[in-house]
Design a protein around this nucleic acid. Structure first.
Lengths: 168, 168
DNA sequence: TTAAACTTTCAGTAATTATTGAAAGTTTGG
DNA sequence: CCAAACTTTCAATAATTACTGAAAGTTTAA
């Protein structure tokens, strides 16, 4: 397989994967493209490579930057800006987990906390079933929340940092 | 907070959460409704509770059954069928992980395997960057794959049953 | 066997989400 | 300051995805 074909297949697959997980297909494709590019790319590079408009590139790159997955890069002598993606897959995973926790897990935990305050007879089977389900979800969501915190801390301290702490 | 209000808030939140994760909002809402219902519900119960059409209920319930999250229930003396959802959150999590692995992780792993066969000079920085990213993703995706297998096996044979109960 | 009770399908439509492209906005070199 | 180079915005539109409702299909009781 030629590099060009392999790149295209990967970009395509990553786009599909992303859209199954609630991530805009184009955003995932731009991310894929940047992840496999050794150099930072310009807006025009991305437009051309993926056949999409300038506005589309601009908006999706902004989102990728908001997710902490892509950075702006300035090259000396060049007026336009370039974009570069983190390539360390563990950092990417941690970053995505961190963002999703903030954007989706925490709001759900807040609602769960709210609805836990339901009033009513604990012997009523409607109330009982409701509370049992809510509590079950609270417990697992809370665990996920803490696991992600641990992951993020481990990443921030550096992997060896957290390993060394075991011996202190 | 009254039970009715709490139920509605939870159903609403679960729908939003689901749609952020690539799951049809209505499907997630039906799932939420069934999870907090002590009794199995009929198509009409669901239609009324969520204000949606018969066709919509039918299709989304079928999907939930395909995901292994909901079962058909027949009540003696009743002609119509009822639907019941698994309420054990750990079983739900395992089941979702298992399905997503099959539907999304495995296809990606297949593509990664394919594109790994890229030909070209390993000293070419384009090829090098491509291979490094692909290999990184392969490694983490392979780990996720195995972790899910372990989770599913643990659930299926109950070997870690007593241990897992600590987290329930 | 029939008809009522129930379930499924799917073409048409509605709602949502993504994309374009051009205009407006911003920055920079001279 | 000007104007060229570049970035951002956003109204219009396209593409995708979800939903409805009625017709077709299926099952069952009598």
């Amino acid at each position: 397989m030629k590099l060009e074909e392999a790149k295209n297949q990967f970009i395509q697959a990553w786009g599909t994967f992303g859209s199954n997980w609630g991530i805009n297909r184009t955003m995932a494709q731009i991310h894929a493209l940047l992840m496999i590019s050794p150099e930072a790319l310009s807006t025009e590079d991305i437009m051309e490579e993926l056949n999409i408009s300038r506005g589309n590139v601009n908006m999706n790159v902004r989102d990728l930057i908001d997710w902490g997955l892509v950075e702006r890069v300035f090259k000396s002598g060049e007026r336009k800006e370039f974009f570069w993606a983190e390539k360390d897959i563990w950092k990417i995973t941690t970053q995505v987990a961190k963002e999703r926790k903030k954007r989706e897990l925490e709001p759900v935990l807040k609602v769960l906390e709210q609805v836990s305050k339901v009033e009513g007879d604990k012997k009523d089977k409607e109330v009982k079933a409701f509370m049992e389900t809510i509590n079950g979800i609270k417990r697992i969501a809370g665990n996920a929340d803490k696991t992600i915190d641990t992951m993020v801390k481990a990443e921030e301290n550096g992997f060896f940092g957290s390993l060394l702490k075991l011996f202190k």
